[in-house]
């Protein structure tokens, strides 16, 4: 997929674990893991908003567009 999720980078910067983040955002660890590993097909604005709030960052810090080689 051309959209890269840099959640692990942000989590490392903020020194927050998966469990802590999941709890603060209000989603399950399993769902957060799906998002972190790039398996997610879509992200709700409400989830993104909560992630940005907890991680104190911008959506662009979490999501990145990278052109795929065809």
């Amino acid at each position: 997929m051309a959209i890269i999720v840099n959640l692990d980078v942000m989590m490392a910067k903020r020194k927050i674990s998966l469990g802590e983040l999941a709890e603060q955002v209000g989603i399950t660890q399993a769902n957060l893991s799906i998002l972190k590993t790039g398996k997610a097909k879509a992200v709700r604005f409400s989830t993104l908003e909560k992630l940005c709030e907890v991680l104190d960052c911008q959506p662009g810090d979490i999501l990145e567009y990278r052109k795929e080689d065809s």
């Binding site: 989603i27 097909k41 992200v43």
Partner: peptide
């Protein structure tokens, strides 16, 4: 359903 399951 798959789309819904993988929408976080």
């Amino acid at each position: 359903k798959q789309d819904n399951d993988y929408t976080i």
